[in-house]
């Protein structure tokens, strides 16, 4: 049903977003791309995978790759005692988990236009953001789930952590 998020799409029919925080930034993913939200799950690390790939989780029999958005966006690592949450998104026929700091509400942004992301944001963040919706109390960064889960994995990446 949904358009699969071609980069050229600037407005979407759905204006409802599932929101979450990553390193103080307020993100949203269109609700029709989100399957569910889960607490931190037992995770199996994948040696030699990209650092953003935290591991694999068992989602009712399906194997789901968990991508840490902080690493993916080039933001500072989470401190040890903060437990991330899983936002399970559907992307190009696969199900992927995005690890985020905290979950917000589902919000309706009807009437607030999607604007291009400010070019002063870090590149890593700009790369995966479709645009921003300035809400009265906060600015929502609209995440492109397809790009966010696109982790370039090089087979020669030495080890899991630098």
């Amino acid at each position: 049903m949904h358009t699969g998020g071609s980069p050229g799409t600037t407005t979407r029919t759905s204006e409802q977003y599932c929101t979450f925080w990553v390193a103080g930034l307020f993100f949203g993913v269109a609700v029709d791309e989100v399957q569910e939200v889960l607490r931190l799950q037992p995770m199996t690390p994948v040696p030699r995978a990209d650092r953003a790939v935290t591991g694999l989780i068992n989602l009712r029999g399906q194997i789901v790759t968990a991508v840490d958005l902080r690493v993916r966006l080039g933001l500072p690592d989470r401190s040890g005692d903060e437990l991330p949450m899983n936002v399970i998104v559907r992307s190009r026929g696969e199900v992927v988990s995005l690890l985020v700091d905290d979950i917000g509400d589902v919000i309706d942004t009807a009437g607030v236009d999607l604007q291009p992301a400010p070019t002063t944001m870090p590149r890593g963040v700009q790369d995966v953001v479709r645009g921003v919706r300035p809400l009265p109390e906060s600015i929502l960064l609209v995440l492109d789930a397809d790009r966010a889960v696109d982790v370039a994995t090089t087979p020669d990446n030495p080890g899991g952590t630098p």
Binding site: P42, M43, T44, V46, R48, A49, D50, V53, G55, L56, I57, N58, G61, I63, V64, T65, V67, R92, E94, V96, V149, D150, V151, T153, T154, P155
Partner: peptide, 22 residues
């Protein structure tokens, strides 16, 4: 396993063990 890991030729896939872990 997901396409994030496809480039890793060392893995043929994944499975779920009796205790539910991958």
């Amino acid at each position: 396993i997901g396409r994030q890991l496809k480039a890793l030729s060392m893995y043929a896939g994944a499975t779920i063990m009796g205790d539910g872990r991958v």
